[in-house]
Write a protein that binds this DNA or RNA. Sequence first.
DNA 1: TCTATATATAGACATTCATCGATGGATGTG
DNA 2: CACATCCATCGATGAATGTCTATATATAGA
Lengths: 207, 207
Amino acid sequence: MTTDFRDQDQAEQLVAFFQGLADVTRLKLIGLLAQRERSVDELVAGLDVRQPTVSHHLAKLKLLGLVKLRKEGQVHYYSLDEEHVHRLAKSVLSVDGLARLAPADEGATWEQKVLQTFFGSDGRLKEIPAQRKKRDVILRTLVEEFERGRRYHESEMNEVLRRFHEDVATLRREFIMTRMMQRENNLYWRAEAGGDEAPGVDWRMNP
Amino acid sequence: MTTDFRDQDQAEQLVAFFQGLADVTRLKLIGLLAQRERSVDELVAGLDVRQPTVSHHLAKLKLLGLVKLRKEGQVHYYSLDEEHVHRLAKSVLSVDGLARLAPADEGATWEQKVLQTFFGSDGRLKEIPAQRKKRDVILRTLVEEFERGRRYHESEMNEVLRRFHEDVATLRREFIMTRMMQRENNLYWRAEAGGDEAPGVDWRMNP
DNA sequence: TCTATATATAGACATTCATCGATGGATGTG
DNA sequence: CACATCCATCGATGAATGTCTATATATAGA
């Protein structure tokens, strides 16, 4: 399968929002409208594009809800829809909003692919991956065979590991090198903290 | 000429920033990288596009400085350049940054165009604009002929205004209607507050 | 009612860009 | 040395889009 957003609509809304601001002319329009309400003519005079182009962009901004329109006779007065802009900016740029960017499955599909590749149908390791990235995936799976908090003699370790692969020495050594397990004179135990902390992104300004 | 940004580079940087985020695939990439460092393979597995496409987007994100690369043998590990992201978000989304969106001349060019249209080379009004928007421009110019704080008799008003146009009655009436001047039994004076306040946009979240 | 002005819409054109398959370069493995 | 893997680059393609001219619509003024 593929990675989906927790909320696909949220993604589309984000794209639309950024896309709406991803144009010099539209940014200039917003700049002009941020000062005060302005007619189309005024906006045209303040930019270096023709009137239909300005109308075109105003229509887009209006569709996005960034701008509102007040008609007075022939003249169309545009202004920033500040309330809507604030709502959008809040939902789009807030920490919560951006956190939803995280895909739901966290890339589990790739790890499954690796597991299927290296584990045979008999449940044993076909080989120990040479590449560190894949080896880590295997090791993180194997380490689950050991209880947290309990201490294992080297002979116990070997007994468990041999159910998966003959080269138990390599596996033991890798557990230590990756800090997934710790050792003290022939006693092994699982380390406390996992390596995976998810820092996340803080989009707040003036942090 | 045309409206320029106070800092054209700032505008380009803004456009580039928004444009960089204006794509679903890139947003998903950022979402994945926000959790942890990831290899290209991993990212490909987490998305529904092919590997060259992922590389393409990673190159763009790297060019924008949103992402950094750590090579380890064949494997290229990408991660969010959080420091750079924060710097960008701060400069781009901060109130100061967005305030620079305001064009320098504030649309003065349009008003000049109106003035040139309705003032003859002799300095007199060719006609009084029928459209309110343009009439206001003319009136704001004419009202400068009167000192603030001083009171004028109707006859004084007429004397001044007749230098610009015969229809002084209409001009007097317009001054009152637009609240540019006030009247009390045949005495006229300029109103205190001007109408133009510039609200500006506050892009801060959680306001 | 006729004309002028303000704005929107339609259609055409050029450019940008996301995506793909194919390929090349670099690195690790046997 | 030969081969597999990981990744970047190239060139092509189709879709999206910013801009224009020309035209339509609506309103105000004469």
